[in-house]
Design a protein around this nucleic acid. Sequence first.
DNA 1: CAGCATCCGGGTTGATACTG
DNA 2: CAGTATCAACCCGGATGCTG
Lengths: 139, 139
Amino acid sequence: MVRKIVLEGRECPPPNVYAEACPSRAILELIADKWTLLILPALKRGPVRNGDLMRLIEGVSQKMLTQTLRELERNGLVSRIDYGEIPPRVEYALTDLGRSLADAVRKLDCWAEAHIPQVMAARAEFSKKERPAPRPAQG
Amino acid sequence: MVRKIVLEGRECPPPNVYAEACPSRAILELIADKWTLLILPALKRGPVRNGDLMRLIEGVSQKMLTQTLRELERNGLVSRIDYGEIPPRVEYALTDLGRSLADAVRKLDCWAEAHIPQVMAARAEFSKKERPAPRPAQG
DNA sequence: CAGCATCCGGGTTGATACTG
DNA sequence: CAGTATCAACCCGGATGCTG
């Protein structure tokens, strides 16, 4: 039996994002952000304004929203359209690059929503397992 | 007409993970973690030992590895198999639930790796845009 | 080898106030 | 409305030392 970890394979073997120095790691960390995971699919609807995003994504602060959007813009996933009006009117939209990622991200969102029952059940199960002996103290 | 339903299902409208109170948000935040994004696909290869993961995933500390694995276990995505041997031997594997998520997560990893050039290019472009006039002073 | 407890520095986040 | 600036609080995450 070869107990060696086989790296390369057609089906699923993960890529080499595991290398700390690889740029893909940095990109991955951009994606591994709770606001990114919410904002990206939200933009699939089409150009959205700042205020609309604020209202849509409950719990996000103005600071984090802008910050995340900037980061996404910097990485070419989102485009910012400033109409130069007064009062200000700015719209955010997915770029082609962003769209290709938003599809994958949306799947995660859907997964999260679709598997709430299973996860909840697992948590309950885990609690039980963790406390097999409720410390009978003394008799 | 069934068409409308099909369109809604496969097209983009994001789900209601946007509600702060919805459990899916909590689940999403579990996913929105850089180590989760690396560990999950890593387990697709089959049961893996702690040490192997440490070596595979560069830069992860023992603490974060265990911590993340615990969290994944708690949520029913990963199963922990302790062989009760000495020296200790523990293996981690995906549950069915975890497997279904790992597929989606792996796509993100692949995306990150596949789009390095585009992202790099976008960053360069962004830098230029941010500094349109490098203050040429006078000619 | 697997994993926990502890300490602690710093990055990240939220609140608030302010601008155009 | 969109966005910045500032500050304090917090939590994350690394390092270390110890256990079985």
